[in-house]
Design a binder for these strands. Structure first.
Length: 282
DNA sequence: CACCATGTTCCTTG
DNA sequence: CCAAGGAACATGGT
């Protein structure tokens, strides 16, 4: 579920649910998930702590906590590839891959992650290393041009560099390049000023559209499979029963480009799939 | 069985 | 030292 838009939607969903709640007890079922913190540190620090606020930075969730002695501290979450966070009734059995559980009284805050690539840690150093927020003011065309200058790396690969832009992942990188009409294989440093400005725009549009359309997973696990906006590749439930096409190229290998009908191509860059239209993307 | 998967980090290579 | 490429991590779906 995890690129910037998914994390943003999750944060908006979770923030009012956790605000002012107190952690009675924290359980670490998968110690790897809290690294570089230790299981003991997490358990000790979270006992009696209260949720003060919740923000997103790149693909990270930043929980602002107030400890039992009044001290503020950050709790940093990352969903990895398969992480999910939600509240569930305390009587519910814990899911198979529950990595960290916080008992809130009546409900549990559950961080489950089948592949265990995610994080829930007290260490916030990763945040400082991130590039600007693509939807924020610091992400200007000038900044972007500067960040790309001199790089021989393919632009698609460059877009995944969290030190350049925070939050773009493998799906939206392909999507933004399609919208900009730019080939994913061009060296980042060879883009013209106009293309860079255009790509900056399409990155912002792509991410904002995804946020506006809602979540890619069911966010509410506490009821009977309440699906407040479940969709993923290709389609999204709208207000009615209709499904709307969501992605233009990602995971559409061999399917017709929605613009020109040319077959969408899949290539591998940096050991990851890239999808693009060879005709629309020069 | 083979291959693929929304992410990040670490190792190797040049 | 730096940039770039690719494997590793761990589990599940097709």
């Amino acid at each position: 579920m995890p690129e910037l838009p998914e994390v943003e939607v999750l944060v908006r969903h979770l923030a009012p649910l956790v605000k002012n709640r107190t952690v009675r007890r924290a359980i670490v079922r998968r110690p790897k998930i809290v690294l570089p913190s230790t299981q003991e540190q997490i358990v000790r620090k979270l006992r009696g702590a209260k949720f003060v606020g919740l923000m997103r930075r790149g693909k990270y969730l930043l929980f602002e906590m107030r400890g039992s002695k009044g001290q503020r501290f950050p709790l940093v979450g990352h969903l990895g590839m398969t992480g999910r966070m939600y509240l569930a009734p305390e009587k519910n059995p814990l899911p198979k891959h529950a990595a960290v559980v916080m008992e809130l009284g009546g409900e549990n805050f559950i961080f489950e992650d089948t592949r265990y690539f995610g994080r829930m840690t007290l260490d916030d150093s990763a945040i400082a290393a991130l590039g600007p927020e693509p939807l924020g003011e610091a992400f200007t065309a000038e900044y972007f041009a500067n960040a790309l200058r001199g790089s021989s790396q393919a632009i698609k690969v460059k877009l995944l560099d969290q030190q350049v832009i925070a939050g773009v992942g493998n799906i939206y990188a392909s999507e933004a390049l399609f919208r900009a009409g730019i080939s994913p294989r061009v060296a980042a440093g060879r883009l013209k000023a106009g293309q860079i400005a255009r790509l900056r725009e399409t990155i912002r549009e792509t991410l904002q559209d995804a946020i506006d359309r809602g979540s890619t997973v069911p966010l509410n696990y506490s009821g009977e499979r309440v699906r407040d906006g479940l969709f993923y590749f290709g389609s999204a439930p709208k207000a009615g029963d209709f499904y709307e096409e969501r992605l233009q190229v990602y995971d559409r290998e061999g399917k017709p480009c929605r613009t020109c009908k040319t077959s969408v191509k899949r290539i591998v860059q940096g050991a990851r799939s890239t999808f693009y239209c060879p005709k629309c993307q020069r």
